[in-house]
Write a protein that binds this DNA or RNA. Sequence first.
DNA 1: TCTTGACTCTATAGTTACTACAGAGTTTAC
DNA 2: GTAAACTCTGTAGTAACTATAGAGTCAAGA
Lengths: 149, 149
Amino acid sequence: MKIGELAKRSGCSIQTIRYYEKEGLISAPERTEGNFRLYNSVVLEKLSFIKNCRALDLTLSEIKHLVSLQNSPETPCEAVNEMIDTHLLVAESRIEDLQKLHGDLKQLRLKCGNARSVDQCGILGELLPKPERSPSGTRNERSPSGTRK
Amino acid sequence: MKIGELAKRSGCSIQTIRYYEKEGLISAPERTEGNFRLYNSVVLEKLSFIKNCRALDLTLSEIKHLVSLQNSPETPCEAVNEMIDTHLLVAESRIEDLQKLHGDLKQLRLKCGNARSVDQCGILGELLPKPERSPSGTRNERSPSGTRK
DNA sequence: TCTTGACTCTATAGTTACTACAGAGTTTAC
DNA sequence: GTAAACTCTGTAGTAACTATAGAGTCAAGA
């Protein structure tokens, strides 16, 4: 099958398939005389594997690592376990961050009573630097980038 | 003060400050004869505002919007409220995604008993495409990019 | 006065995991 | 033969920065 059909069958876009090839996640397939990529159904499994991993938020380089482990099945599996464990921790801390964030936003949302104009609405004021107002001292110590991966 | 001191005092990196200037989040400051940026302490507040917003995961373009609202305080504040509300929803769905993810990873982690080698460890097998094994049908329907913003 | 080191400047490239083109060539159906 | 649909490569764009190169500026010490 050509790349268009593979895209439909795998649910990956054509560009994504080519991208995965470029990144070494799937191997370069044969070509037709006209230089079109020609796939067999084995690559469908590989793409499915990648999709499953991506759904678990593994990065492409982690997936690449897993793919290479698949190709040498006698390797000890600790590496796999560690990767999953790391991801568990990352997911946990992101959940925590997001929950804190959600709480802060909710608090903020309450600041706007029935104000009609921006200067009466408490929200913008709340986002201004705080002189000595806030009782909890470390509210704004969190790094801005900390909540994204 | 010059940009280095501002960076220290604000907790933003020098590059970030210049980036914010380029993006129109803070206005271009005066320059010295030697073309160095020269700031007064007002910009500290603006950077603090931006940092607070970033800590709440607002995007730079949203922050830009808020900044422009600050400059016209008679605007109705509904726009601000809507932005916060949207962010609340986004945060909620991301928390949900992450919790699902975390559950899936934990499940996966259990697949490795005391296996020593990759081919005995259940994890990689679990990530392979599933023929008709899984009782819940829609496990892998989630878009890979859905869990990131 | 000269030099050294610290600082700053602009412009550009890199990060992640793709997506979206442009411009060209290939295949297929009519 | 031709038009539509498909594919090719290569490049640029996304978000919010970070890092680097190469040049210029400034302050302090010899």
